[in-house]
């Protein structure tokens, strides 16, 4: 799915294509030569932590943010040249619900349909269809600002679908939702895809990517560091991990150094003082313990995990040209 060197132009089977897209904001390289392509009717999950560049990439692909260099095509149109054609064919749901709180849910949908060129009757009919699809009929007449977070998000997603978009962008669609709303949203996405819609969703949740996506692209500090199906990614890392929790950054740096000397490849964990160590077999846990013991480091907690997307992400992010700060801090 993720092709490092993209073909000169997308063919009809490709709904989203980015070719070496770079975006620089002042001194910040928000996107660094990102190339990817998404086949029509499939779901790509863009995985990354806050600030990884997910929203910027969505901005570029929805013709809202002009790329500094590189090209991108959505639904067959160049984002730089045909923004309006793209906007006619995409639906966008942002991290923050983009609906008019002053208007009722129904009027929000009618407004969008009217702006897309629907007549009054057609707009109302489309609004009612979507309200039913998203189980919003009961609250349709209420002002959107009185909606709960889950209702608002559903309305926002409905708003993105008014124009029957062929490509839908969901920027962290389930952030801040309760588990049942999350599940409901996942089902909606699955139905969309079943109807042939192409979906690009960004997420920090690995289970979400695992559940919904045909392919996953991992974004870190603006660069794509891995891509493939969930299974491929797991296979690529293919290792179980030991998570070592230490009492601070300094101890962690000492421990990381000791583990490296023992020919292991420790990477920084999600929190300060946490190290993730990929291992080949269960018996290697002993090697981790021995190495720590040898260095005189006492771990506060030591746990063993089967490979998960979380580890995939951490391992890959740790293997970037710029090593994670904690491990690098050992020598600095």
């Amino acid at each position: 799915m993720i092709t490092p060197a993209a073909s000169p132009r997308p063919n009809g089977d490709i709904a989203i294509e980015a070719q070496e897209v770079t975006k620089v904001f002042g001194a910040v390289r928000a996107l660094d030569r990102v190339s990817l392509s998404v086949r029509r009717g499939t779901v790509l999950a863009l995985l990354g932590h806050n600030g990884a560049g997910k929203t910027t990439l969505v901005g570029v692909l929805t013709a809202a943010v002009p790329p500094t260099s590189g090209r991108a095509y959505v639904a067959g149109f160049d984002v730089a040249r045909k923004p309006r054609e793209i906007r006619r064919r995409i639906g966008l749901t942002g991290q923050f619900a983009s609906v008019d709180g002053q208007l009722s849910g129904r009027d929000n949908l009618i407004l969008i349909a009217r702006l897309l060129g629907a007549g009054r009757k057609a707009a109302a009919a489309r609004a009612d269809d979507l309200l039913e699809l998203f189980a919003l009929t009961d609250v349709a007449a209420r002002r959107a600002r009185t909606y709960s977070g889950g209702l608002r998000r559903r309305l926002d997603l409905a708003a993105g679908l008014v124009g029957h978009p062929e490509v839908v962008f969901l920027d962290e669609p389930t952030t801040g939702l309760d588990p049942s709303s999350r599940l409901a949203l996942w089902e909606i996405v699955e139905n969309l895809v079943a109807e042939g819609t192409t979906v690009l969703l960004t997420t920090q949740y690995l289970d979400e990517a695992d559940r919904l996506a045909d392919s996953i692209a991992v974004l870190s500090s603006g660069a794509l560091i891995a891509g493939g199906t969930a299974a491929e990614l797991k296979a690529r890392v293919g290792r179980r991990t030991v998570v070592v929790t230490l009492d601070g950054a300094h101890t962690a740096a000492v421990a990381a150094e000791a583990l490296r000397r023992a020919s292991m490849e420790p990477v920084a964990g999600p929190d300060t003082g946490v190290i993730v160590v990929p291992i080949d077999a269960s018996k290697d846990i002993a090697a981790v313990v021995r190495a720590l013991d040898h260095a005189g480091v006492e771990a506060e907690e030591l746990s063993f995990r089967e490979p998960s997307l979380d580890d995939v992400y951490l391992t890959l992010a740790g293997h970037r040209p710029h090593p994670a700060r904690l491990v690098q801090g050992a020598d600095a």
């Binding site: 809202a64 054609e85 906007r87 006619r88 942002g94 008019d100 709180g101 969008i112 897309l116």
Partner: peptide
Amino acid sequence: NGIVARLRSLP
């Protein structure tokens, strides 16, 4: 309000 973000995504 959020409506502007929505309008920006429309043609």
